[in-house]
Design a protein around this nucleic acid. Structure first.
Lengths: 222, 222
DNA sequence: GAATGTTTAAAACACTCGTTTTTTAGGAGC
DNA sequence: GCTCCTAAAAAACGAGTGTTTTAAACATTC
C-alpha cells in the first residue's frame, strides 16, 4: 500500500469536508486529522491549501470534461454536419453529469463543489476553472447557438446562465431541499429524479418567448 | 451626531464586505477598520459576529417582507376571492424585489447576501431566515398553488425552487456574469434588464409540460 | 550495506481570529 | 459638586489558522 495513498486519503477527505462546510470553514487540521494523516502532508504534497482545493476540482473536472468532449464528438459524428437539436445537447450534458459517480464518489459532492466555486466571492477558483476547463463549455455553447438560431446571442447567453443557476443551485443545495420536500410530500428524491424533472423545465425556459419591450437596437448588431 | 451612528456605520460597511467576500472571509477587524470604528463596538452593540450577520439580513428583510405582504394584500383585494394569475404573482414579486433599493442601498448587495445565505453551508443563517421570514414565502407559494392547480404539488415545489435558483444565482453572481456579457456583447445590463429577461423564462419554466416517465402513484396522493 | 532521495512525524513559527476586560470619555439627572 | 449610565477606545486573551522547519523512518539504487 502506502505509495502515495496519503494523497488519495487527503483528497477523499478534503472533498467531503469542503462540500459540507465550505473552503474557509474547513481547516487543514480538520482534513488531516480525519484522514489520519500528518498535518504537514498537505503542504508537502500539494504546496498550499489553495492548491489542494484546485486539486480536488481537477480530480472531478478532468475526467468530466474529457468524457463530455468525447460525448460531443460522437454526437457530432452522428449528425455529421447537421444541426444538433437542443434537446439532444441538453440530454448529452445531463448524461455526462450523471456519469460522474462512475469515476468519483459522489455526484452530490461534485455539484456542491461547483456551487461553492461560483458563490465563493474570491475569483481565484472561478478563474482557475474558467482557464482550465472553459474550452468544453465554449464548445457546448457554440453548439447551442447553432441549435437555437432564432435567439439573439445576448439573450441566449443569459438564458444559458439562468439554467446553469437552476441546475447548480438545485443540485448543490440538494440536501436542504430534499429535507423540506420529503417532509412535505413524503417523497424520495434522487439526483436522477431531479434531472428528469429539470429536463422539460430547461427546454421550456430556453424556448420561452423573447422578453417584451426590448430596445430594438440592442439586438440589431448581435 | 454620535448617538449610535456607529451601529449604522458598522452595518453599512459589513453588508458590503460580506457581499464582496463572504462571511468567514470578512473579519471584524476588516469591518471596524474600514468603518473607522473601534473593534469592540461590534461585540458591544450586536453581541457577536453571528448576531451582526443576522442584523444585516434583518435590515434588508424586515422592510422587504413587510412590503411584500402589503403588495399581496392589495393584489388579493383586487381579485377579491378570485384566483390570481401566475403572471400577476410573479410580477408582484419582481416589483417588490426591485423596490429594495428604495429602502436600502443596493439590490446587488441584497441578492448577493441571499445567495450567500443559501450556499453557505452552516445552517444557522438559513434557519434564521426561515424562522423569521418564512411566513411570507409560505403565503406566496400557497397563492402560486391556487394559480397553477394542474401542477402536482411536488412538481410545483421543485419548479419554484428551480426558479429561485435561477434568480438568486444570476442576480447574486451578477458582477462576474456582467463582465463576461459586456465583453462579448458590448451590452450594458442592469438588474432591471435582467428581471425583464427573467420574466418570460420563469413563466415558461413554470408552465413547462410535466416530465415524462413519471411514476404515476407518486402524484396520486399529492 | 552504506548512501540517497522520498515520505511521514513532531514541533515550532508567525499570524489572525472573535471575544473579553480594562480604561477613558461624555453627558443626564439631582 | 457628584454619581450613574452609556458609549468608545485600547489592550490583552486564548484559541485556531496556514505554513515552515527539523527529525525520524522508509524505500531504492548503486
Amino acid at each position: 500500500m502506502a505509495q502515495s495513498d496519503t494523497v488519495t486519503r487527503i483528497l477523499d477527505t478534503a472533498e467531503v469536508l469542503f462540500a459540507e462546510r465550505g473552503f474557509a470553514e474547513t481547516s487543514l487540521r480538520n482534513i488531516t486529522s480525519k484522514a489520519r494523516v500528518n498535518l504537514a502532508a498537505v503542504n508537502y504534497h500539494f504546496g498550499s491549501k489553495k492548491a489542494l482545493i484546485q486539486a480536488v476540482f481537477s480530480r472531478y473536472l478532468d475526467p468530466f470534461t474529457q468524457r463530455f468532449h468525447t460525448a460531443l464528438d460522437t454526437l457530432e459524428g452522428r449528425y455529421e454536419g447537421q444541426v444538433i437539436p437542443l434537446e439532444e445537447l441538453l440530454e448529452t450534458m445531463a448524461t455526462t453529469v450523471l456519469a460522474v459517480p462512475a469515476e468519483r464518489n459522489s455526484l452530490k459532492v461534485f455539484m456542491r463543489l461547483l456551487g461553492l466555486a461560483y458563490s465563493q466571492a474570491q475569483g481565484h477558483l472561478r478563474r482557475f476553472i474558467q482557464d482550465e476547463y472553459g474550452d468544453v463549455f465554449t464548445r457546448f455553447t457554440e453548439l447551442v447557438r447553432q441549435a437555437t438560431p432564432d435567439i439573439p446571442d445576448a439573450e441566449r447567453f443569459w438564458r444559458l446562465h439562468f439554467m446553469l443557476g437552476t441546475v447548480i443551485f438545485t443540485l448543490s443545495g440538494l440536501d436542504a431541499l430534499r429535507d423540506i420536500a420529503e417532509k412535505d410530500y413524503q417523497e424520495q428524491v434522487s439526483v436522477r429524479d431531479l434531472v428528469r424533472r429539470l429536463r422539460p423545465v430547461v427546454v421550456a425556459a430556453m424556448n420561452a418567448p423573447l422578453p417584451a419591450n426590448v430596445d430594438e437596437e440592442k439586438y440589431a448588431n448581435a
